[in-house]
Design a protein around this nucleic acid. Structure first.
Length: 273
DNA sequence: AAAGGGTGCAACCGCGGCGGC
DNA sequence: GGCCGCCGCGGTTGCACCCTT
């Protein structure tokens, strides 16, 4: 079934936006919000499709957009994040306040990609010097196409005495958006952080254990172990995993910890849980 | 000064996810 | 469960501007 192309209706304007159109859109959204993009242009009196309005607003007119050149720090962050997230521009943009996915995508294609060609970073070796890969046992089938890995990291935090299991993202930053993955951190008795990344071919239904809503709640359920459980060593280690409950403080700490990890490749002191 | 190529960026296109019915 | 419409995302295009010759 074919999808009707955007702006198929005759009479809808395309191309660059005029200042007048911008003003109409801004004042309408300021007064009425943008709960329905489809209806917005009609209600605002714009000869544009909703999609065009949404794009203009999110990429250009939004008041919280940071204009101007990217700083060195922002560029470095983009490079780091792209290394980990791939072309997931919206995910990258979400970590750069005031920057849009479109802007980041543009800067990447026009600027950073070229920079990287001449720049062979040592981040990987740096990271690997701190992350000791203790096993790399994928599922017994499709091993060649699945890139599962488990890493341990020495933590300097000596205060915890129980294993904790932290799911930081449903998608591994090491994998492209076309791949389904799971990333899990486990802190064990010896203050070792185990990073479990699992890459799953999206077409391979055997790696999609049934996950109910509880998986995405704060409590660690056995379902979690199923998801990461292709690695036997991890399964054994997880036998003593305590129920994991989160607090906003803990989430903040983990977010900070993860951000430093992403930005620098270094592993800062592990937050106390 | 003009032409041609390169660059940057706004905007468009089409697809997929998701929710409502 | 399937259909449909809306929204968001990533890829691509088009054009204005800049630089070089």
């Amino acid at each position: 079934m074919g999808r009707a192309p955007c702006c198929e209706k005759m009479g809808l304007k395309k191309g660059p936006w005029s200042p007048e159109e911008d003003n109409i859109l801004i004042s309408y959204i300021q007064n009425n919000g943008h709960s329905n993009w489809r209806a917005l242009p009609k209600l605002a009196g714009l000869l544009r499709c909703g999609k065009s309005c949404r794009l203009r607003w999110t990429n250009y007119l939004r008041p919280d957009i940071k204009r101007g050149n990217f700083t060195k720090e922002e560029e470095d962050t983009i490079i780091k994040l792209h290394e980990n997230l791939g072309n997931r521009w919206s995910a990258i943009a979400s970590r750069l306040p005031g920057r849009t996915d479109n802007e980041i995508k543009n800067i990447w294609h026009t600027n950073l990609k070229k920079k990287l060609k001449n720049y062979q970073p040592s981040q990987n070796s740096k990271r690997h010097s701190k992350i000791n890969h203790v096993s790399n046992k994928g599922p017994t089938t499709s091993e060649s196409s699945n890139n599962n890995s488990t890493s341990t990291i020495n933590s300097t935090n000596n205060s915890t005495s129980t294993k904790q299991h932290i799911k930081i993202a449903p998608n591994s930053p090491q994998l492209s958006s076309s791949e389904i993955s799971s990333v899990t951190l486990v802190v064990d008795d010896n203050q070792m952080v185990i990073i479990k990344e699992e890459k799953i071919e999206s077409s391979s239904s055997e790696y999609f254990p049934k996950i109910d809503e509880s998986f995405w709640t704060d409590e660690l359920s056995t379902e979690n172990n199923m998801v990461v459980g292709h690695d036997q060593e991890i399964q054994v280690r997880e036998e003593n995993v305590d129920i994991f409950t989160t607090s906003s403080k803990m989430e903040e700490d983990m977010d900070f910890w993860y951000n430093v990890f992403i930005k620098t490749g270094d592993l800062p002191e592990l937050p106390e849980f």
